[in-house]
Design a protein around this nucleic acid. Structure first.
Lengths: 143, 143
DNA sequence: CTGCTTGCAAATCTTTTGCATTGAA
DNA sequence: TTCAATGCAAAAGATTTGCAAGCAG
């Protein structure tokens, strides 16, 4: 909450960009929420900030590692990065779209470290997306 | 090659959709190649198949698990799925865009199985994308 | 034959650009 | 005051739709 906004401001200053109303507004629209599509962001922010600016803010945020994109079927969604929420992964249902978060991931981290080191990449981040049929849809489909 | 086309046809028939020229053409444009953007696909297929149809074929292929999208920065690319190429992951360089494939992934599989089972998802697939700064760009940037 | 597929043109939706104006430091 | 950041309008790009025509089974 307040804490997060402060961290945002700190991050922005550290990168020598201004702390502006638009940036705080977009950030708040993402705080404590499910990942959002651009449309959802737009309608949530609803005319307080221009659509173009939302794009520009998101682009900046991605560059600074404040948010990242996740791919869900055809669409992508935006979500705050690890600095603001605990790092995690998603499982989405290919039938109903239901999205759940997976917080256990020690193995993944170890794996990533191993291969990035092997190939000489530094400063790495990653996303893991899992798709499947959720237990509910499985029942329905089975008739 | 021929083998792959046969597997494609088998997959299409199994799903009760027609084996058509458009579908084979799009498939071939993806076979033995780097992941491609829609534009690259289009220009590669170059007017033999209408753009709309390419979209429709890709949509179908994604639904049937023949191809999948991978997110690289702002853009996504299309690549054949595990049935046609060995399952693997990517590391992309955020500076120069260089993309390399990572074929070791036993840990990932084990992890996926564990969590999907825990949350009751079946029929799962997954993508893991890793970003970082490649060794070359690291040197350049360091001056 | 039959109806799934494709092509075409137009509609929509998404994202980017240029430029004048505003506002943070 | 100064230049980064924003708003607005318009351009550019990407994706989808509706419908007539074509082709696989």
């Amino acid at each position: 909450m307040d804490n997060s906004i402060e961290l945002l401001e700190k991050t922005l200053r550290k990168n020598n960009v201004f702390v502006t109303n638009a940036r705080k507004t977009v950030f708040l629209a993402l705080l404590n929420s499910e990942p959002r599509t651009m449309q959802e962001l737009e309608s949530r922010i609803n005319s307080k900030i221009n659509r173009t600016s939302i794009y520009r803010v998101i682009e900046l945020f991605i560059g600074l590692g404040i948010v990242h994109k996740i791919q869900i079927g055809w669409k992508y969604k935006i979500e705050l990065s690890d600095i603001f929420i605990e790092h995690h992964h998603h499982i989405s249902c290919i039938k109903c779209g239901k999205l759940i978060s997976v917080h256990e991931h020690g193995e993944i981290e170890r794996f990533i470290n191993k291969v990035t080191q092997k190939y000489g990449y530094t400063n790495t981040s990653h996303q893991l997306e899992i798709q499947g049929v959720c237990s509910n849809c499985k029942i329905i489909r089975a008739r």
